[in-house]
Each structure stands twice: as structure tokens, then as C-alpha cells.
Design a binder for these strands. Structure first.
Lengths: 190, 190
DNA sequence: TCAGACTGTTAACGATCATGAACGACCTAA
DNA sequence: TTAGGTCGTTCATGATCGTTAACAGTCTGA
């Protein structure tokens, strides 16, 4: 016994489909005909006894017609994540540069927070980044050389920076110990 | 050979899922772990080689996290229906009262058009309807007795009406031939 | 009362999903 | 170079979907 039932009752597909279908004045069979699905399918979905494929659901909704987006509009949002557990944060970047993003990929968020770790020798490269927005940060530990446009500076613990991301920029770790930075950029970069 | 491939490429689930996943900095396996799905599932979905169930897609999206509504937000709307073929219009109502709704159940529409046909003896009943909005119409053929609040009138071809739906109202066919009316009400009643 | 047409539900079965385990490719460190 | 790690892909199999076909219940009209 898996949690199919839990999942189904959680989605409440059936309830909403039935409401929309009846609102349109369609019987299960009438809708089935329009949707190129059988009435049994609609019956089972409405009874929360089946977990339809996305394609099947779309065909059904097309028969009403209602878009998938509209259909799920009343779906409770996945509760806004407020707290991020370190072990859950995916590690981005490769090699000597490790990034952990906080608040990323959340629609409607104005910025992205990064927890960056530069191992000795780490370097964002000669090809300098450029993108829309602004970014800033504070060095937590270690030392890093930051180049922004024509400016170059080496920062240590407690030091900070802030610049327009459209200026070409480059980060390069210096010294024997890794450098840790917490930064933010806006709007969220991908 | 069915049209599974057509359906899948039509939905473009894979493309969007991949974009969202990568934007979140997650590998297929990392996302799979969060979503309680296997990496193979994500791989196949992204390659448009599988039509996931709604439940599975939701689990995957929860791992990003993105709501179903957001995920389908960019789905092209089912092209706004402009022309309705009579044979396609579902017939609502029972017995002597037949209704055909035009533009119903379309989110974002301001009103519903009804093609009503009252067979001899048809009557919306003594329990008079009341609902939000306004409604009006024109009699095409036959004769009908309309009661709105304290007002009562018998209308024939070419006659029209318009009133606030919150007033109790009742329609009753009179005469030997069926009565056909085209009406509109706002906002769409369910 | 009966036949007919409709409603939504349910059982059995073939098609498909979702899984677990393998694969080759790539990178990193030793 | 090798070993170990990750990446995304692919194959075989059990679980589930979606269909076909039947079912009982309701309503209409004869």
C-alpha cells in the first residue's frame, strides 16, 4: 500500500474537475467525447480513484475548456520557504568554486542570496561576467581579489563590495586558506 | 502508433522542467531525491519520452519548488473560442427547458450567452431564481410570461427584457408553440 | 407498467508509467 | 594513469493508467 490515496485526496483533482464540468453543463460522457477520453476515465478521476497523466488531464480540460494554469490556479502555493537547512541546499558551481543559493527560483522574489566558497586557486576566470542587476557581499573568511571594470582590490574578512553587475567583474581567491563570501544579486540571475 | 509523441511535444513539459531544474541549480538526481522520484523519471520527462501523472509532476515540482499553476502559467491558452458550432453546444436543462450556453465557463469572460428553448408547458418554477448580476434577452419566437419581483408581462417575438438578477424572477412559456429566447447574464452564473 | 435513453459507477485487460540497475561520458584528486 | 565521484541516458520489470464493456439507478414518454 503506497500513498496514492493520500496524494489523490491531496490534489483534489476530482472535486475541481466535477465542479468545472457541471458548470459547463456537460455530462461525463459528453465531456469524454469532446476530450477523446472515455467516460470511465472521467468518472474515476472525479472520484479520486485515478491519478491521470498530465496529457490526459489536459485533453479533458480542453473539452471544457479550461487551461491547466487556470485549473491549478486555486492550488495552495507550496508554502513559501523561509528557512533553508544547510544540508538541503544544492551545491552549484564546480571545482574550486562552490555556490549555495538561497531563495532562488522562487517566483516573485526580488533577489538571490549566495553562500560562496572559493577554494585555494579558485577563479571565476578571465572572461569576466556581465549581467543585468546589481550585486554586493561581505567576505566572511579568507582573502579574495575582486576586479570590477578597471578597479581591482583584495578584500579580507569583514570587507564588502557592491557594484553594477553590468560592469565586467571577476573573483579570484588569494592566500592559503579558502575564502567564504555571502553575497546578494538582483534580480535573481539564473 | 498513437499520438503520444504529438501530445508530449505539444505539452513541452520536458523543456520547461529542465529550465526550472537547472535554474534551481539541481541535478536530476538531486531533484529526484527531494521529490521522492527516481532520476530516470526526471530524465524521461525532460526528454519528452514520458507523460507523467499529475501527482508525479507535482512531487517533482514541489522539489524545486514551483507550484503547478506557476508551471503551467506560460502554457498557451486554449485558443479563445470565438465560433461555436450548434452541434457542439451542450444542452443543459431538463425536460421542457433546454439551454445552450455560449462562452460559458471561460475564465475572464464578463458574461454568458444563453440560447433558451421553452417547450409548451415549460416553467422555471414557483421557487424564483435569485443571483448576483444582471440579465437581459430578446424573444425570437413563441410567447413567454416573465415575472420579475412584482412585475409580470407576456412577451412575444422581438420583445426584450433586462433586470437585476437579484430580484426574484420566473419564466413560463405560454401559447401553443415553443418559445425561443436569446439572453445574456453577467457575471457568468454557474 | 414498460421500454428507451440517459446518468454515474465498476470489473477486467492491454498500454503506459515509474522504478531499480545498469551504462558511457565527464571531471577531480591521488 | 587510475580510482572515485558526478552527470544524464537507457533497459527490463512491476505498478498504474485508460479503455472496453458491462452494471444499476433515474427520468421521460408511450
Amino acid at each position: 500500500m503506497n500513498d496514492l490515496n493520500t496524494e489523490l485526496s491531496d490534489l483534489r483533482l476530482g472535486e475541481r474537475l466535477r465542479i468545472l464540468r457541471e458548470r459547463a453543463g456537460l455530462s461525463q460522457r459528453a465531456l469524454a467525447k469532446r476530450a477523446n477520453v472515455t467516460n470511465a476515465t472521467i468518472s474515476l478521476v472525479e472520484a479520486d480513484k485515478m491519478n491521470p497523466s498530465v496529457g490526459a488531464l489536459r485533453r479533458i480540460l480542453d473539452g471544457i475548456p479550461v487551461s491547466l494554469s487556470e485549473f491549478f490556479a486555486f492550488e495552495p502555493e507550496p508554502e513559501q520557504v523561509i528557512f533553508y537547512q544547510a544540508s538541503d541546499l544544492p551545491e552549484i558551481g564546480k571545482g574550486k568554486l562552490s555556490l549555495k543559493r538561497i531563495g532562488n527560483s522562487q517566483f516573485g522574489r526580488a533577489m538571490t542570496i549566495l553562500h560562496e566558497r572559493y577554494e585555494p586557486g579558485a577563479d571565476t576566470g578571465r572572461v569576466m561576467y556581465r549581467h543585468e542587476g546589481e550585486e554586493g557581499g561581505i567576505v566572511i573568511s579568507g582573502r579574495i581579489e575582486i576586479t570590477v571594470g578597471e578597479e581591482r582590490r583584495i578584500l579580507g574578512p569583514g570587507d564588502g563590495y557592491y557594484f553594477d553587475s553590468r560592469k565586467p567583474h571577476r573573483f579570484r581567491q588569494v592566500g592559503p586558506e579558502p575564502c567564504v563570501i555571502v553575497s546578494a544579486c538582483t534580480p535573481p540571475t539564473f
